[in-house]
Design a protein around this nucleic acid. Sequence first.
DNA 1: GTGTCCGATCGTTTATCTACGATAACCGAT
DNA 2: ATCGGTTATCGTAGATAAACGATCGGACAC
Lengths: 112, 112
Amino acid sequence: MSTTTRTAASPLGQELDLALLAKALAHPARVRIVQLLLAKDACCGEIVDELPLAQATVSQHLKMLKEAGLVIGEIEGPRVSYCVNRERLEALHELLGGLLEKAKEVDTSGCD
Amino acid sequence: MSTTTRTAASPLGQELDLALLAKALAHPARVRIVQLLLAKDACCGEIVDELPLAQATVSQHLKMLKEAGLVIGEIEGPRVSYCVNRERLEALHELLGGLLEKAKEVDTSGCD
DNA sequence: GTGTCCGATCGTTTATCTACGATAACCGAT
DNA sequence: ATCGGTTATCGTAGATAAACGATCGGACAC
């Protein structure tokens, strides 16, 4: 399976990739998980400990974050250590930056 | 309604707002719509013209974008002119920037 | 008025998300 | 080989999203 880790190059892919990344953060619990992992790598159990959600649910959210490439899990003995894939988070940030730059080309024509 | 334009003060609100904005962009069609509107304000019909979607569907997407505050619609004679609320898009960009900054506080604790 | 164009909304179908308990898989120790 | 701790997955139920056709409502022209 190709790891979708690299930044998609295709211009059409950008929309899709932006949507994909946005979808990964489209739930408060997942945003929270990313925040927690940015502060400190953690295993699933620690995250469950911080959220009002069942272990199965957290594992599900982690799976989505992994599929979007935002989070990486490494098997570490009996547990799995998760961390944020910073490149990927930056990719999202930059995709948005790209949108905003294009917006500047059409100055204050305004909505009114 | 208070425009959530300013940086949300409540730390909890940030997660929710980020998730809300991300959800609005969590579909390729909506990303496309935002791109189109950034390039040029447009009415619903013009957007429908650019997308392989029915008018009702596009209207639905526009509604979601409006609810997230990303898009503004102004009735202009017989039609409705839509434009992107740049502040709001920047808010999303900055919320992500905030996340990335916090990430730097914990340098190379590393995923490996 | 009547008709027309445009957009929003309703009602429906299908698909995906969210959440959970239960269970399986996996690893390290006993 | 078995046990205890940890995570993934299965199966399920309810909620929400995505898409469409059909229909309603407003704004102009006639």
